[in-house]
Design a protein around this nucleic acid. Structure first.
Lengths: 340, 340
DNA sequence: GACGCCCGTTGAAGCGCTTCGACGAATGAC
DNA sequence: GTCATTCGTCGAAGCGCTTCAACGGGCGTC
């Protein structure tokens, strides 16, 4: 019923060369004459040869798989996680790597398992918490790893992330320059802060630091991504003239809540978001935002990982500078603006 | 720097037995005396032995990995996809399988690659389109596959899904029983219908069929998951007394839009959703819903796949019957209800 | 014209595991 | 007491690939 699988020996026979020649053609690790190469490639095509992944991993001592540890728990900022995942898969595939999905539930044991069994050549972790049990485990693994995020103690680890502290500062500086003196940070759900997730806290610290520096009064309010929660969150900060929303699932709800309260954007309130560009552009009006560069970070993580796997050394931490894109949702305070 | 990996031979030596005995202890495929077993297991523990995945795959002719093909494209109903992914990973892990992430971008070639190279023992596909190029490819693969969803021509394939046709019918029947005579289906974004995604169309057909049968007038409107889109969608269906929302990302926006228009739920309009329970419970008021059983489907897909891999034969298609949970958002039409 | 070199190719040795067939010891039947 | 069985263990073969060392033939050099 199923045809017997094609092996490298079949290809070799068909092309009239040895198996090692086929291997060298495919890997390019040795010079092969053009004529032989073509013969071999033709046979590969004709026979539909796919090298056996297990055999390759065994002999070559590399599986060409990387593990991606994702927080699949409910309540995560799901679309952004997906963007990261897509970026990682994309970047990995372009380097001929596949991606093994590992959930955070499996914890450190799961990482030890996939690394210890040589199932993967390296690991990428997302959403690492301040006191994540997996962080010490990573240091003892026989495979390299890269974190997307910044744990409390990044010693001995390679991390990439957006510079959220700076992002918080940039937001405040932008608003301060426009003349705002009272701003509110609408952040992640409370649970995310409690969990000690780095990016949420760092943004908050950046906001506070820049506010102090710029003579701006700053509130910080956690926020569930639901309309009633957005309404409730706006209550205690009624006098803020600008909002920084660091919660992409809630952005639209915040805008709706403002509309419901009869406060126009940017006429009465300026709104600034830390979110992916597509979210900022899907909102009405288009929201000035600091981009969360999921694609760039995913790609960078893969690059760093493969570089480490090849024995190159790489910077311990790379924090991408935030980029603020001005759109239609921010204005100086205190003067209503006509919409065009 | 990195200690040399522990092999089965090391364990055998340490335990004073042969390598095959270790293998049999670990696989349980042959009777082993209790005393030997304990000795071996102790050595495994002491040495921290993890069998080499590649070697195991090569010798055992099974990788213990399944591929999960996900639509990582933007605009998908992301949280539900995540729920499915989590369920699949969970179920797979509980059977000692790992999950390889394959994106829809890779298309049929990607599936051929992972199956052809024996990287995976089987494949699970989500979000298959009506004329998906991958469907014919699946039939020729040397590995079993299971679809979550129902393609136009499921011949020769194993599929599991919610019975969305029936779900649409159940919604209309429920509303008809309450006395509603004009209902509107607020569905997926237009692009999803255009793409020919099965579940969206089947729901619509179910709604239409049941409406005709029950003497109910039914509109069907596609819907983007944004507040302004929700507002716009409500306009042409102002006289409907009940809404069926089959778009979980838009549910909250629809409720907000109704509130904005001064129409109370369920006083003026009944709202019924096809969505996961947690989404229905997060809304205000809690929304009567037909559950999308992501966890059950994910688990079922894995079970079916592994059964096929073991050579058992399994039903070609399994459509789970929809379950409607009555909450607070539906009432008979035409009489405003006081909120308690 | 002989020598050494390099290029393209090959055979063979593993990589670490599973599994088959075989073997010795212990057990039960008669 | 002998013979057939069963049980627990072992040795060896082999899964399909990569890679090393080696080899033969063409070339340039003197």
């Amino acid at each position: 019923m199923t045809p017997p699988p094609v092996t490298i020996a079949d290809v070799a026979r068909h092309a009239g060369v040895s198996a090692s020649t086929v291997s060298y053609v495919l890997s390019g690790k040795r010079a092969i004459s053009a004529v032989t190469r073509e013969k071999v490639l033709a046979s590969v095509r004709v026979l539909g040869f796919h090298p056996h992944a297990g055999a390759r991993a065994l002999a070559g001592n590399r599986s060409n798989i990387i593990a991606l540890a994702l927080p699949l728990r409910a309540g995560m900022n799901v679309p952004v996680v997906m963007q990261f995942a897509a970026a990682v898969v994309d970047a990995a595939r372009s380097c001929d790597y596949d991606v093994l999905l590992v959930t955070a539930d499996e914890g450190a044991a799961g990482l030890r398992r996939v690394a210890g069994s040589a199932l993967v050549d390296g690991l990428i972790l997302m959403d690492v918490e301040t006191d994540d049990e997996r962080v010490p485990a990573l240091r003892e693994l026989s495979r390299p790893s890269v974190l997307i995020g910044l744990p409390a103690d990044p010693a001995g680890l390679v991390c990439v992330d957006l510079d959220f502290t700076r992002a918080g500062e940039v937001c405040v500086e932008h608003l301060a320059a426009l003349g705002h003196r009272r701003v509110a940070l609408l952040g992640a759900p409370q649970a995310v802060y409690d969990r000690g997730t780095g990016f949420a806290r760092r943004t908050r610290e950046g906001v506070r630091a820049a506010a102090a520096r710029c003579g701006v009064e700053a509130y910080a309010v956690p926020l569930e991504p639901l309309f009633p929660a957005a309404m409730a969150a706006l209550e205690p900060i009624g006098d803020a003239t600008a909002l920084i929303v660091h919660n992409e699932s809630a952005l639209d709800h915040v805008l709706t809540a403002l509309r419901t309260l009869g406060r126009s954007v940017p006429g009465d309130v300026s709104v600034l978001a830390i979110c992916p560009d597509d979210v900022a552009l899907a909102a009405t009006p288009h929201v000035t935002n600091v981009q969360v560069p999921a694609a760039a970070l995913g790609r960078l993580a893969v690059e760093r990982l493969l570089a480490r796997h090849d024995g190159d050394d790489v910077p311990a931490a790379t924090l991408l500078p935030p980029a603020l894109t001005t759109r239609l949702s921010c204005h100086p305070p205190g003067r209503a603006v006509r919409q065009f």
